[in-house]
Simulated scan of single mutants.
Amino acid sequence: MKLNHIDLQVPDVQCTATFFEHFFDFEHTSNRASPAIAILTDREGLVLVLQRLKSPTEKYPEGFHIGFLVDDESTVLGFQERARAEGLEVSDVIRNNRGTMVYCKAPGELLVEVNASPRAR
C-alpha cells in the first residue's frame, strides 16, 4: 500500500499553495484561481490537496505538523536561512537522535518540519 495524498484544511488555499510551490517545489495541477481547493503534486507520486477551512475557529492540534525529509544537514540549514530571509517564522536548528531539523509556520499556522535524518542516508 502506498500513501497517495494528504488533504489539509487551510484558511487561505491559494496562499498556502504558493508556499508549497515556492519552498518545496510542488506543482499546481488544479484551477489556480479556485479559493476553495488546490491540488498539488511533488512529482514523485504524492498529491497534496488543500481545501478551504470551513470554520475559522477550527485549529490543528498542538504538535500536528507535516514533515519533509531532505538528504543532508546543509539542506536544512539552507532552508532555514532562505525561509528567515523571506520573513517566515523559523525555529533554531534542532539536533537530536532523529536528525537535524527546523520547523516553520506555513500560512494558516500550519507547522512544517524540514529534517535530515541520519537513518535516511
Rank of each mutant, 00 (worst) to 15 (best):
F23M: 09
E86L: 14
L3S: 06
L3Q: 05
V114N: 01
S91D: 03
T100Y: 01
N97A: 12
V93L: 09
T75Y: 08
L53K: 14
N97P: 05
R84E: 08
K59V: 12
I66F: 09
D7W: 14
E44S: 14
D12E: 14
N115G: 11
D7N: 15
L46N: 00
A38H: 08
V102C: 09
P56R: 10
A38Y: 06
P118K: 01
D25H: 12
G63R: 03
L77R: 10
G108N: 09
T16N: 01
V102I: 15
I94P: 04
L110E: 03
A33H: 10
L40Q: 00
S55R: 15
L77N: 10
L77E: 09
E86I: 08
R82V: 02
F23L: 06
L111A: 09
L88W: 12
R43S: 13
A83S: 06
G108Y: 00
P107W: 07
R32A: 14
L69D: 09
D12H: 14
A17V: 06
L69T: 15
L48C: 09
Q51E: 13
L88S: 04
L48H: 04
V93K: 03
C104H: 02
N31E: 13
G87P: 00
R98N: 15
T57Y: 09
V13Q: 04
G67Y: 08
D92M: 07
R82Y: 06
T75R: 11
R84V: 04
F24W: 03
V114K: 00
H22Y: 12
R119E: 13
D12T: 13
N97T: 12
T29V: 13
S91C: 04
H5E: 08
K59H: 13
V47C: 12
D72Q: 09
H65K: 10
E73K: 08
